Simulated assay, not measured.
Amino acid sequence: MANQSQVLELENFLPYRLSILTQVVSEALHDLYAGPFGLTVTQWRVMAALGRFAPLTASEVGQRIVMDKVAVSRAVAGLMNRGLIERATDRKDRRRASLRLSTAGSDMHAQIVPIALAYEARLHEALSEDEQRLFDRLSDRLLARAKTLRDRR
Rank of each mutant, 00 (worst) to 15 (best):
L127V: 06
I115R: 01
D130L: 10
L117K: 12
A118D: 14
R122A: 10
Y119I: 04
R122H: 08
L138C: 04
H124M: 11
E131I: 08
A144Q: 09
F135L: 14
L134M: 15
A144K: 06
R137N: 12
A126F: 02
R145S: 07
I115N: 00
L134I: 14
Y119E: 11
H124V: 04
S128G: 11
A118K: 12
L123D: 06
A116P: 00
A116V: 01
D130K: 13
A121V: 02
L143N: 01
I115D: 02
D140N: 10
I115S: 07
F135T: 06
E131M: 13
R141Q: 15
L142N: 06
L138M: 13
L138S: 12
D130C: 10
A121W: 04
F135S: 10
A116Q: 05
D130G: 07
E129H: 13
S128K: 13
Y119A: 09
A116H: 01
A121H: 09
I115W: 00
Y119M: 14
A116G: 07
A126M: 09
I115E: 02
A126P: 00
L138I: 07
E129Q: 12
D140R: 03
R122K: 14
S128F: 03
R133L: 15
Q132G: 00
D130R: 12
A118N: 14
D130Y: 05
L117N: 03
A116W: 00
E129V: 12
L134D: 10
R133I: 13
R133S: 14
S139E: 07
L143H: 03
L134F: 04
L143A: 08
E129T: 10
E129S: 13
E120L: 10
R122C: 07
D130A: 11
A121F: 01
I115Q: 03
L127E: 05
R122M: 11
A118M: 13
R137K: 15
R141D: 14
L134Y: 03
L142M: 12
L143V: 02
F135I: 05
L123C: 09
L123F: 00
A121D: 13
D140G: 06
A126I: 02
R137L: 03
R145K: 15
H124L: 11
I115M: 08
H124D: 13
A118Q: 14
R122E: 07
A118C: 10
Q132C: 00
A144Y: 01
L117I: 02
L143E: 05
L117Q: 07
A126G: 09
D136M: 14
S139I: 04
L138K: 10
L127A: 06
L123I: 06
A116Y: 01
R145W: 04
S139R: 10
R141W: 03
Y119Q: 13
